[in-house]
């Protein structure tokens, strides 16, 4: 069976707790339905783009450049992703800089939302 990535784009903003709860309820509803149908292989929610760091390397093994913020060019398109389990941002940048996309294009590093931290 073919596999697909469903990439979610949305407007960022300061949602009120009520708005946030309503959206989460919708996601839970989708999760239950698609989960029961057995189509969800995996998925994560990302922190907002203010927490993003863009990594770019001057050729394999070259100088690493880091920039605050998301990757926001229109020429390159999202081509794939890895989920990295690292102890901190420095380790994540260290590995991101070794992904070929870091010299053929850019790699944006963004933390996942850790729902276990919420009260």
């Amino acid at each position: 069976m073919p596999k697909y990535a469903a990439l979610i784009y949305s407007v960022e903003g300061d949602a009120s707790p009520e708005e946030w709860a309503a959206v989460m309820a919708e996601y839970n509803e989708f999760g239950e339905k698609a989960g029961a149908a057995g189509v969800i292989v995996g998925g994560e929610a990302l922190e907002d783009t203010h927490t993003a760091t863009t990594v770019n390397v001057d050729g394999k093994g070259g100088q690493i450049h880091t920039t605050d913020g998301p990757f926001a060019e229109t020429k390159e398109a999202l081509g794939g992703f890895y989920l990295l389990d690292c102890k901190d941002l420095d380790e994540a940048i260290h590995w991101a800089a070794q992904i070929p996309g870091a010299w053929h294009g850019r790699v944006e590093v963004r933390p996942l939302i850790d729902f276990s931290q919420d009260g």
């Binding site: 922190e47 203010h50 927490t51 605050d68 102890k87 941002l89």
Partner: peptide, 24 residues
């Protein structure tokens, strides 16, 4: 406040860089 949030959320480490990182 955004910078502080990024440090906390993206887990920018609180440490002195190692010698090989210092040139950067």
């Amino acid at each position: 406040s955004r910078a502080k949030k990024k440090i906390a959320t993206a887990q920018i480490p609180y440490r002195v860089p190692e010698d090989h990182e210092l040139p950067d």
